[in-house]
Nucleic acid binder design. Structure first.
Lengths: 239, 239
DNA sequence: CCCATTATGTTCGTTAGCGTACAGATTACG
DNA sequence: CGTAATCTGTACGCTAACGAACATAATGGG
């Protein structure tokens, strides 16, 4: 008897018609992801795709000298492993667990089988991939034109949107890696936000106190991405 | 009697099996694109998709204040309009003709019909979209970590790879818009390249003199993108 | 409880790129 | 041909972010 899976916590799975969902359900395996765990190294084949529940995964572009930048973030609204059904099998980016938690995983081949039925699952995954495209594009322009203060706000909001509570476990060092800036820069920006009473943190625990305040400071990039996700994945879709 | 179309100039079309190609051929319409022409405005529905032949199209992310950054470039190796078959119909980015020339265009609905046959065309377009994802991701990290000199080299190489000759028609002002930097910054970087004997230009005409020299100066981002395109689109693919 | 480890705070000189302003130089066009 | 428009070159002060170095503070394992 299969352990009951709260698949609806993942928005993509929740959008699937019952028929498709029932086909997948027996093969969805619940796993616990730990902070810093790698789900996918650059150029490596993935055995599984992951549907996060309350965990968050960062997609990072890592350069030869070790410097990195987050190009997208994936939570309950998405899945990790689009390259499997897109046909390339691998990607040059890494997938790192940014916030520990649960996810449902599925063998890559089973996802591909479902995808190639060319039914609702395919259309859903493609729209999700387009949303991911938008997030990457907006990250590129944000990296170019906005300062660390704004980017930190964006990053905090994107993260907290994908978590059940209002607290995240994350050091400034790690945030700096994600944003591709210095740790000291994050310390300074975070200090401003704390002084303004928007967040409070100590040693790897960041609490969001005044979310509207953060939204008032964030650059447009956050909103653009959020609205595109809503448009592509959140409304009544003819499957 | 249809005008013969040199469709093979477009690599995507050239990779299609005869059957698929013959189905599309009658509906491919040759058009001339002029510098600066917009093929797609942010959030607007596209009537057609475009398969560039010798033209180049820039995908730009434009912000509220008018500042912009190029997030990807499309030439003979690709097509403009992935959002049509990805299901979102629109995207928040603009598509601007960066180098005048010819393209084949196809009514959006016809492309979608072909895509939904779930055959070789679908698999090809999806792999192309993944290549585009990589280009965007690498652009994001390049914007973060590399200086204008390196980015200009990358931009020049990406452009010249998509052109028949070794000359491009492009002012420094426009390059600055693409890279999302000041015009003066481009003037300075281009001056260095000219002094080093790698390029020569005057008033909107840039000639590549020493391509290996450019490759020696460019950041890894160029190579990563190029190799990923080759891997995804250039080898013997089981259609 | 102590000490090694890890996280955060602060400083300081350096630099790349910005914004602005303006001066030549080339082209387009009436 | 001559004037306006466009393109390119150069200069200058300013700022955000960098790199490096070091201080303080909290945590956790022996």
């Amino acid at each position: 008897m299969p352990v009951p899976c709260d698949f609806q916590q993942n928005a993509l799975l929740g959008l699937l018609p019952a028929e498709e969902l029932n086909r997948l359900l027996p093969d969805l395996e619940r796993v616990t992801l730990t902070l810093g765990q790698s789900l996918c190294e650059s150029g490596q084949h993935m055995k599984h795709v992951y549907f996060p529940l309350d965990s968050i995964i960062s997609l990072l572009c890592v350069m030869e000298n070790g410097a990195s930048t987050e190009i997208a973030v994936v939570g309950y609204e998405g899945l990790v492993g689009v390259s499997l059904f897109m046909g390339g099998e691998t990607t040059p980016s890494r997938a790192i667990v940014q916030s520990a938690g649960q996810a449902l995983r599925l063998k890559g081949q089973l996802l591909k089988n479902e995808f190639y039925r060319a039914g609702p699952m395919q259309r859903l995954l493609l729209r999700y991939t387009q949303a991911l495209l938008t997030q990457m594009a907006q990250t590129a322009v944000c990296n170019r034109h906005h300062n660390v203060d704004q980017q930190l706000c964006r990053w905090l909001l994107l993260s907290i949107d994908r978590l059940p509570g209002n607290e995240l476990i994350m050091t400034q060092e790690l945030i700096a890696n994600m944003l591709g800036v210095r740790r000291e820069g994050v310390t300074e920006s975070a200090g401003k936000l704390q002084k303004a009473g928007l967040i409070s943190y100590n040693r790897g625990h960041i609490k969001i106190i005044d979310r509207p305040g953060l939204e008032a400071r964030v650059c447009e990039c956050y909103t653009v991405v959020k609205e595109e996700y809503d448009r592509l994945l959140n409304h009544n879709i003819v499957m």
